[in-house]
Design a protein around this nucleic acid. Structure first.
Lengths: 194, 194, 194, 194
DNA sequence: TTCTAATCGAGACGGTACGTCCCGTCTTGCC
DNA sequence: GGCAAGACGGGACGTACCGTCTCGATTAGAA
């Protein structure tokens, strides 16, 4: 029956969407480690094979879905460092205030430390974009003369939001608006000393 | 038949020690997620029940064993903020340089966000002691006049080592001695602005 | 755009034939139980739907294809019971010597015991024709005076080839030409006692 | 913790029995091919691992359980061939009258034709004992002078009950007491002609 | 010293989930 | 319409661990 390769068969978009939605719900219910493919399939009303046809592993699936959640705002638009920095940190504080997201971020961090594929994926999807946005803020401040021209740009990446992450994820404390003000001031001072 | 209540028996110390050792070896061979109670028992030459008699869950076991690893240095001994701060950060950088420890720290962070018992345990074992050490450093600096007396002590807890953690755990980059110098300077500046 | 209603379409004969051939090849490569519709379709270069359009189930497909294999010789032509009987038994022995066919016959037997549709189908396709051929042999022998006129015709159906089937299918032993001679003599004697 | 090999751990008899019972029920419900380990475990209220700990495969499990069902009566006790033969055939007819047993026998026959291990197991468990009982009957008849001393003993194995099996399993007809009388007479005649 | 009860290694237990395979049906786009 | 391709929901496969339970066989503290 050799015939020219006829009709195709393509992943159905509605199924894909049902799976993504189910993953998010499962993540919310028990966190990364408790997500089971079986439960995702059940909740999505989908066969397990439909999932494995799209993603080769649980990690790839969750990593991909998370990418959607960690979307970040556009480029900085303020007229001074403080404003830009505040916008950056506020948006990150928003993620930290999203239910379950801190735990998911911590999960992904630990998994990525062990899994090169996931690490690359997360870096490409989330890390690099966020880093670029941070560097834009810094570079604009340098251009304005607010920061030193020979500032260590790499180190700047570690200063902006790490204190927020530490507060919420590692110390499991809460982040109030007043805290944000303080941190913006502190980080500004820190960057100037860099 | 009815006799007075007789002798007891106590967890044998050598068994306990064999389990702790096995956990550490398993952690080294694949990280937190790959540790299985079955494998720990096998490696320790111990029945699974002997483990569950001592710890209620895998998490508790690993959390406890890790506690030993996360031991911190004693109280600050320097004569200025920079020195004390550097000692604090260097010791934390040492933990971050220990194989698997970053991933385990991230695991525990995410688990603790979901598990109140574990959260309390970790706070008591690691969080509070480390916080107190940090506050001592800060308070000494205030006493010396290096820092403002109305500095926000709570926020200081989030500034000292968060950038190191972020660099290694979240950004999965490496931490060089030169970086440490930079971060000590920056954090000092940040604290002064607090 | 609007075209005449356009002719109906009919199952293409070459596709049907490709499927039948593929089934036989698959049967040869692992027996009934290992035949998968997926493999048949693959081997035939055919979509699975093309198979299900023609046969409602795996069983029906295989049962049908096997029907072709179980074709039997024409009516008896000998001049005595022995000769007719021998021809009947030899042809059946030939089926039993065909690779995989004993196992397939046993499969179909057990399936038919549970599945009325299949039972009817097999009876109509194979059972009845074979029974009629047997009865012709018996009736001719009665007409010749070789067998009693009040012989129990129904029971005769159970005597002719059952010993061959038992030998090969149930006892999993081999059937030699010398065995056939013996069985022909025995069955003749048995029929005469009926 | 190297210690002398201490306490054992043995398969629990009640669990084993629950599994055997569940297998028989499943066999009755859908036949060999429809028996799933999952369903057996579910029905027995048992984990799948408990089954796999006892039997390496579905085939081994079912083959073993079936062995219990196909138990046969003791040695012949009659004073003539007819009586012994009738007892043999009656007991086999009893098996054929047991619900589902014909289908199971047919299943096992076809599986055994493809699976050497199962074949050996069935031969040892059921085939050989039954053959020996048949040969005892024949040998006693030879000793009494009822059968020829140079009768082909192997062929005798194929004559005794094959017609019953064929009637019920292959032709899917019923077996009445009157049929049994007829078959006993016929088989006797057949054996004498052997 | 004897008794007795908790501990020990071993591993079976009921479960849950893994990732793969195939079932029989459904969908897409070409012919 | 039939067709090849193959995605779909479903369900079973055999394996690996989970945390619990059950065995006899040590221990060792209390009597």
């Amino acid at each position: 029956m050799s015939r020219p390769p006829a009709g195709a068969a393509v992943h159905r978009a509605d199924v894909t969407e049902a799976i993504r939605a189910a993953v998010l719900q499962e993540l919310a219910t028990g966190g990364y480690a408790r997500v089971s493919m079986e439960a995702v399939a059940r909740r999505a009303g989908v066969g397990k094979a439909a999932i494995y046809r799209r993603w080769p592993s649980k990690l790839a699936l969750i990593g991909d879905v998370i990418g959607d959640v960690l979307v970040q705002p556009g480029p900085p638009t303020g007229h001074d460092l403080q404003t830009d920095l505040r916008s950056l940190m506020e948006s990150f504080a928003g993620l930290l205030a999203t239910p379950d997201l801190p735990a998911i971020m911590a999960d992904l961090a630990s998994e990525a430390l062990r899994n090169g594929d996931l690490s690359e994926r997360i870096t490409a999807t989330v890390g690099t974009p966020f880093g670029q946005r941070t560097l834009e803020v810094v570079d604009r401040a340098v251009a304005r003369g607010e920061l030193s021209a020979d500032l260590h740009r790499e180190a700047a990446l570690d200063l902006t939001v790490s204190c927020l992450y530490w507060r919420v994820v590692v110390r499991r404390s809460t982040l109030e608006p007043a805290d944000l003000d303080r941190f913006v001031a502190t980080v500004t001072a820190g960057l100037k000393a860099l």
